[in-house]
Write a protein that binds this DNA or RNA. Sequence first.
RNA 1: GCUCCGUUCGUCUAGGGGUUAGGACGCCAGGUUUUCAUCCUGGUAGCAGGGGUUCAAAUCCCCUACGGAGUACCA
Length: 555
Amino acid sequence: MLEKKNGHLGQTLQLSIIIPNPYFSITSSLPEMPLLRFYYLCPINFRHTRMSNIRVRFAPSPTGPLHMGGVRTALYNYLFARHLGGKMILRIEDTDQTRFVEGAEDYIVRSFDWCGIKFDEGVHVGGDFGPYKQSERSDIYRKYIQILLDKGMAYYAFDTPEELDALRKKHEEEKTTFIYDSKSRMQLRNSLSLTKEESEELIQNGTAYVIRFKIPEDQYVFFNDMIRGDVKVHSSSLDDKVLFKSDGLPTYHLANIVDDHLMEISHVIRGEEWLPSAPLHILLYEAFGWEKPLFAHLPVILKPVGKGKLSKRDGDKLGFPVFPLAWTDPKSGETSTGYREEGYLPEAFINMLALLGWNPGTEQEIFSMEQLIESFDIHRVVKSGAKFNPDKAKWFNQQFIRLKSENELAIECSELLKAKGIDASLDYVETLVALIKERLVFIHDFWDQTFFFFEAPQEYDAKVAKKRWKENTSEHIAALAELLKDLSDWKAEPIKERMSAFIQEKELSMGQMMNAIRLALVGSSMGPDLALIAELIGKENCIARMNRAATHIKK
RNA sequence: GCUCCGUUCGUCUAGGGGUUAGGACGCCAGGUUUUCAUCCUGGUAGCAGGGGUUCAAAUCCCCUACGGAGUACCA
């Protein structure tokens, strides 16, 4: 790993488990102190258990519903923290007022509640490191940006957005990219290019300004990612990012670093989209002289088909949810469905998400949240993006439905029936659940699997009729119905005996006749044991259905 | 374009110098079931390409290709 970056060091370290300690600054060059080398060689678990306070955070922006990628990021944070006995924090990053969406924060909280991801601190539960909403922390950021200004590591920039846009456009036409950096900053309007007096005057006059970070020139920034290993970037490829906007609020970069430091975040586990700005964050920590957290950049979730990452719109197009819960956009009124609404069990959703980009190193696939916590190791998160597979998501749901007790399922199925205006006893529903449990992918499949217990078929599957209904089938069915009238003990066993005896006596084909009866009772060739169906729908219904079929199905 | 990250069956992945390259989803076939589903058994299919290093490379190195992310007074 290190060899790639640093030849001479690589030669001294021949072992492959080299994970640099992030608590030492290694910006300009890799240190060669023996102690550090020892630390590099320490097994990962040793380093984790030594860390007394594991604190991680999930820090969404309330700009809309959280999508499944966000839930997965939060989940990995949660599993990581719980596995190591640490704390999980929910912080709301709402520094961009223009993108604020009403109800988004509440949606985020409700989603985690449904998923079973619990927070130790956060906007909704409080804690000792609050406030947990960035819009309520602006004084804090102002204080810290001043420190950077005083140290000469940040500067005022007076360029208007229009000026910068024009510059970018001009460069684009020339097939180059405009970068606000050490090469261009002296040609722009800022406190570095202007005299002190000029800058002060502009500020006095109320000229709008932003505060930019002064990226140090010509140095390498190293950091270690728990998933990707060592990453090296040259500062010349970084630009002077805006830290403080003209509206008096910080950008993500500043707020994030300040909050993570103040909230004593030990591990930053976030999406891969942050990887390119990680070097900036490292530099920021160093500018403040703060201890850095350990980083882990998670791979993205990709679309099941086609190119690119899974986006909020894919769900509707491809027929699966991308959100945990249904969401209605407050402005457009547009509604998107959620996993919950589509019939997914939260356990299944979580299990599926956990295995999308992580594996336990064993062949176990079905995990409870407790088991996930027990097994989770962030070093087993894969590096590459994972295409989401809706079929596998369904399979997980099917597995978790089987894990549910018949009573639990019956309670939910009863609700389903009630919505259809059917009032069945819980006992009866439970009996049915026991019969068809293995056929359910979703709980709402219950109706498709049991409708014939509640209502007689009005139509008969033409294909099955063609195959099973012969010249005199109607006659036989009517005769059998007549025969069944005399059966006093209406239970599956005697029913079956009576049917078999009839078929044998008439020298009919068992398969043909049984399927014909099934067609009469169910309307198609599906369902559990025929005699059981007959028993459960009752004698009268059974006979009525047979007689109806005898007159309605024509060869 | 530039910067960074990646690449093992169609998909999710194991495997990290010597493996018949393993598992799961999907798909196909057979068995079980009087039907359908379940279940069981089997099958299908993969190391992106090219160079090195090595007795030996999916595994280590380099190049190419492809994919992804970023390139905002968004997060």
